[in-house]
């Protein structure tokens, strides 16, 4: 790792101020960033540790909205009775990220700000149509994710919370990449705000996306058979050691089918 200055602000305002510095970089749980820095692929001059900010903590359910502080660790979300009661699929998803130790450090804010194409959380955020809250504004999920490792966050902007609408039903189905245990393909299916949404992670070269063909098929007939009948194109899907585009396209369908079955 290259060396850096380390600051740990206690408020969002102080964090935002610290991030104005040249080559300043925010770090939350560090479960991705530290590995990247060890490989010397990132060289921040100042590292701004967000884990000491109380206003970014906490989980609450109110008026059909589950509000998760950006600093909530995966284990907290997985273990939260409120989350489990309101959107069990979200708790499931958090409980299957990485391993127990990663879940004890990694945060939702860190995960979505990084927008790894194989990360789990983006699928829930997009699948539920959540709203990303930052120090400056609120961003709809559809606008937040901008492709591989890219979001609509501005320089120095900090995610402070994510607000999930409570879904009528939802299911998370993850097929693990055998080595990293990230999603080779993960599908989040939700019946929310009167529509069926199917968000897919791990599959596309553009990162998390909504599978329009599957959503259409399920909108008129919410059944495994409808999924079977829909076609998922492998164009633009990731090709790597662990899966060809065709294989990933197949998994998108299979995982969607399983989600639908779990919700029926």
């Amino acid at each position: 790792m290259y060396n850096f200055d380390y600051v740990k602000p206690a408020s969002v305002a102080d964090a935002v101020a610290a991030l104005q510095g040249e080559d300043a970089q925010a770090i939350a749980g560090g479960q991705t960033l530290i590995a990247t820095m060890k490989q010397r692929l990132a060289q921040p001059r100042t590292l701004v540790d967000l884990t000491g900010i109380t206003e970014m903590q906490g989980i609450s359910v109110d008026g059909g909205v589950v509000s998760v502080g950006a600093g909530a660790r995966h284990a907290e979300v997985a273990g939260s009775a409120e989350v489990r009661g309101a959107i069990p699929a979200l708790a499931d998803l958090a409980g299957k990220i990485g391993d127990p130790q990663v879940r004890n450090r990694g945060t939702i804010g860190g995960s979505i700000a990084n927008n790894d194409p194989s990360a789990c959380y983006p699928a829930a955020v997009l699948g539920l149509g959540a709203t990303v809250v930052t120090n400056a504004r609120e961003i709809a999920a559809a606008d937040f994710f901008q492709g591989l490792y890219t979001t609509s966050l501005n320089e120095g902007e900090v995610v402070t919370a994510v607000k999930f609408p409570v879904a009528a039903a939802a299911s998370w189905q993850k097929f693990e990449q055998p080595a990293s245990r990230f999603s080779l393909v993960g599908v989040f299916v939700a019946k929310v705000e009167g529509e069926v949404r199917v968000a897919v992670t791990g599959a596309s070269e553009e990162g998390v996306f909504r599978a329009a063909a599957l959503e259409q098929a399920l909108a008129s007939d919410f059944s495994a058979a409808a999924v079977e009948g829909a076609s998922v194109s492998s164009a633009g899907m990731i090709a790597d050691l662990h899966g060809t585009p065709d294989y990933r396209a197949n998994l998108v369908k299979v995982m969607t089918k399983r989600a639908v079955e779990a919700m029926s």
Binding site: Y6, K8, I27, G30, Q31, I34, A35, K38, Q39, L47, D49, T51, A75, D99, P100, Q101, V102, N104, R105, S180
Partner: peptide, 29 residues
């Protein structure tokens, strides 16, 4: 390892198991 996967480094921080290879010493203040 250098990719947070082996768990040889697991310790407890405030009662939770974490990977000590993926946490800065200063974060443990």
């Amino acid at each position: 390892c250098d990719t947070l996967q082996c768990g040889a480094c697991v310790v407890h921080v405030n009662g939770d198991s974490v990977k000590a290879c993926s946490m800065l010493a200063l974060s443990a203040e």
